[in-house]
């Protein structure tokens, strides 16, 4: 499943870039994320807790910055996480793009998400909606933090 999210920040591109590339801090903008820590260069370990009604997922995994180009304002991030209780995993690739427009910066995140194993048996449409909300919350939170 693919999504695109945008958020506009009243700040320079450099400031947004700096915020975005502080991965542990930026990741805390995803609701349910706990304990993101560095594990090598451009690699981070972390946990994401997601709840859809009675179904509680605890996704343990890693996040890798696979490419970054400060000049172009683009970065690629890949996240792999697994819930061993329910039996299932997610894999997400995110293409981040910052573009400056006058005194604002637009953050654009294109996500390609795969939901695998038993997690996927819980209504794909609802999962899609949840993931969509999660990414929009992330973008909005990041925008708020930069402006703070």
């Amino acid at each position: 499943m693919k999504f695109t999210h945008t958020a506009t920040v009243a700040a320079s591109r450099d400031r947004v870039w700096a915020k975005l590339m502080d991965i542990p801090a930026a990741a805390r903008c995803v609701p349910g994320v706990a304990s993101v820590r560095a594990a090598g260069s451009d690699k981070y370990l972390g946990t994401l807790a997601v709840q859809v009604g009675p179904v509680r997922l605890v996704l343990d995994g890693d996040l890798v910055v696979t490419a970054r180009d400060e000049k172009a304002g683009t970065a690629s991030v890949k996240a792999d996480a697994k819930d061993s209780r329910v039996g299932g995993a997610i894999r997400a690739t995110m293409a981040l793009h910052l573009s400056e427009k006058e005194d604002e910066t637009e953050l654009r995140i294109a996500t390609d998400l795969a939901v695998m194993g038993r997690i996927g048996e819980f209504g794909q449409a609802v999962i899609k909606r949840k993931a969509d909300q999660l990414m929009q919350d992330f973008a909005d939170c990041l925008a708020r933090q930069v402006m703070r």
Partner: peptide, 13 residues
């Protein structure tokens, strides 16, 4: 099927 995954995974769907 979406992206190779059968999404009608039970007889309710």
């Amino acid at each position: 099927v979406e992206d190779g995954r059968v999404v009608t995974a039970n007889l309710g769907d």
